[in-house]
């Protein structure tokens, strides 16, 4: 699938997650120094920022989970978020598609821009936003439905049921699951192995053709073989999608990501740069200590 296919998919215009035709959308922020990268194998020319946060603070009740996070996440690359437990990396991920809305006590301050539009503006419909930003969770969570219905679920929600069989097949192929399940599409998704279930969840997320895929420790509940399959898959997904992945596994971040953001305790984004730079020569001493295993 080409880049054009992603951005001009049948979900409509770039801003259709808004509830009205607000024309005050900022033009996409051009890549700043932070996003320019000489090392990424995927980068061809200037990169376009898909997600940008500015001074983002998140509170759960009285506890501050994110402090002043500013970051620009480039298109069609894999951006990894690493850091010790409780550092806020998952919280940041859940801010992007407003999954934090589901937690009553969560409060977000600052800006989080998707395609130049602040997703916390009043005119943004989180349901429509989530149709353009897919998510894969830590525990594989297929619905108790058939494999086919799992993949078709998002498409059916959006009423995009024309050529459904083709779309389901395409998504399963992209998720490298088709060959294993093509003869058992009617069987329950819960009957698959853990690694297959997670690839099913990835297929489910990409079936609706989102622009971004958020992954919250997608391999942490899987065995090493399944983990490596998921990692290969993430690498391929970045050809078509912007991938943001939270992981507590530093080797995994080093293997699969183009950019790495390091969060440290207190919800602070300490350093964000090309993955090679972060792992070989980080600017920040605390990042170096964390990377080299002195704490965390």
């Amino acid at each position: 699938m080409s880049n054009e296919n992603v951005t001009t998919s049948d979900t409509g215009t770039d801003t259709d997650f808004q509830t009205d035709d607000d024309q005050s959308i900022a033009s996409p922020t051009p890549g700043s120094e932070a996003v320019e990268t000489g090392e990424s194998t995927r980068t061809t020319g200037a990169t376009h920022t898909v997600i940008e946060s500015r001074d983002l603070d998140v509170y759960y009740g009285d506890t501050q989970a994110l402090q002043n996070v500013s970051i620009q996440i480039p298109e069609q690359q894999v951006t990894a978020m690493i850091g010790p437990s409780g550092c806020g990396k998952s919280t940041f991920l859940r801010c992007i598609n407003r999954m934090n809305d589901l937690i009553d006590a969560a409060r977000v301050e600052g800006d989080l821009l998707f395609q130049g539009k602040n997703v916390y503006d009043d005119d943004v419909d989180p349901v429509a936003l989530r149709r353009r930003i897919g998510m894969v969770f830590q525990q594989p969570n297929p619905f108790p439905k058939s494999i086919y219905d799992n993949v078709a679920y998002g498409l059916k929600l959006q009423g995009r049921t024309e050529n459904l069989d083709e779309k389901v097949e395409h998504a399963l192929k992209q998720a490298a699951l088709w060959d294993e399940v093509k003869d058992q599409l009617d069987e329950s998704g819960l009957d698959l192995s853990g690694g297959q279930q997670q690839r099913l969840c990835i297929a489910r997320a990409i079936a609706v053709d989102p622009e971004v895929i958020l992954m919250d420790e997608p391999a942490s509940a899987l065995d090493p073989v399944a983990t490596s399959q998921i990692e290969d898959l993430i690498d391929e997904l970045a050809e078509d999608y912007t991938v943001v992945i939270v992981t507590h596994n530093m080797q995994q971040a080093a293997r699969i990501s183009d950019k790495t953001a390091v969060f440290l305790t207190g919800g602070e984004l300490v350093e964000f740069d090309d993955t090679g730079k972060i792992f070989e020569n980080p600017d920040n001493d605390r990042v170096e200590d964390y990377i080299t295993g002195k704490f965390g």
Partner: peptide, 17 residues
């Protein structure tokens, strides 16, 4: 399990869906 709800919300389902 809540993970199923999260999965559906993540795909852009409304509360009713």
């Amino acid at each position: 399990p809540d993970s199923l709800r999260q999965g559906a919300y993540g795909l852009g389902a409304t509360k009713f869906e």
